[in-house]
């Protein structure tokens, strides 16, 4: 009990720190993240450049701040698309069941057995690489996982006697779906949202690392890792900074989830 709370607390601290870091990056960065400096290529961490500079002499700290913003943006948009459509689909199919539900769930099961990064690769191979293409691809791919979670919760809840009571009172279906049942899926939805966000961050990083997501010169955490890898020997800091930020983000949201169990 006590330990879970410590983990949860740690998660809160990490998430707050990372979010603050990203928010500051939206309004202020020490240098222009895309400004090159030929005289300071692959310079190590110093007082003026705490995380060093990359192969073009760009300030790694500024780029990480900006890049994390891009990654968060992709993550949030993805989760928003996936959750909005997933909740609606999951609620309707879970509550009403029937043929529509059966077909949708078969498709869902099929999609779920494939790793989402592979499906994202397929979609991007058609739509072409780019930030918005990536958001759309990941967003659509996240719908099934949300729909599945919400659906199974609705199947459980609709059998509860309080739903039967509501029906007997003459409450409309829409009100039962979204006023009576939805609040009871809160705990599960919250953890689905954080897990979804984590998966989105990881997927963005993976896709951009493969140069199929965010395109240069824009920075994102995955993009930076991809660029830094060739200079791992001479400038490991430009790979470590974005990588560690990914780990802290995912760890933070993961720990935040601990209390639910």
């Amino acid at each position: 009990m006590e330990k879970k709370n410590i983990n949860h607390r740690l998660g809160q601290i990490l998430v707050c720190a990372v979010v603050l870091f990203v928010l500051i990056g939206c309004f202020y960065t020490p240098y222009d993240p895309n400004e090159m400096n030929a005289g300071l290529v692959n310079a190590g961490p110093s007082l003026t450049h705490p995380f060093g500079t990359d192969q073009f002499g760009r300030d790694v700290l500024s780029r990480v701040m900006k890049g994390a913003g891009t990654t968060f943006f992709v993550g949030l948009c993805t989760v928003a698309i996936g959750a909005a459509a997933g909740i609606l689909l999951g609620a309707l199919t879970g509550y009403y069941g029937g043929l529509f539900d059966e077909i949708l769930m078969r498709v869902n099961d099929g999609l779920a057995s494939f790793p989402s990064i592979l499906l994202a690769l397929v979609i991007v191979s058609i739509s072409g690489p780019g930030t918005y293409q990536l958001i759309l691809a990941l967003g659509v791919l996240f719908i099934p996982s949300f729909a599945r979670v919400v659906r199974s919760e609705y199947i459980l809840q609709k059998q509860m006697d309080y739903v039967k009571n509501a029906k007997l009172m003459g409450v409309s279906d829409a009100r039962i779906l979204f006023v009576h049942i939805l609040p009871n899926t809160g705990t599960i939805l919250r953890s689905a949202l954080t897990i979804g966000f984590n998966n989105a961050v990881l997927a963005e990083a993976g896709m951009s690392y493969l140069s199929l997501g965010v395109q240069p010169p824009d920075a994102s955490l995955g993009r930076m890792l991809s660029e830094a890898q060739s200079y791992l020997f001479s400038a490991p800091w430009s790979a470590l900074a974005p990588g560690i930020l990914i780990v802290l983000t995912v760890l933070g949201f993961g720990l935040l989830n601990e209390r639910g169990e």
């Binding site: 983990n7 984590n198 990881l202 990083a205 993976g206 690392y209 890792l225 890898q229 791992l232 020997f233 490991p236 790979a239 470590l240 990588g243 990914i246 780990v247 802290l248 983000t249 995912v250 760890l251 993961g254 720990l255």
Partner: peptide, 22 residues
Amino acid sequence: SQIAMAVPPFFLGILLTLVFGI
């Protein structure tokens, strides 16, 4: 395991290369 779960495999690959390779 909580920490290891948060590391994307390709970044772990970069770390392993850095530590054990370089």
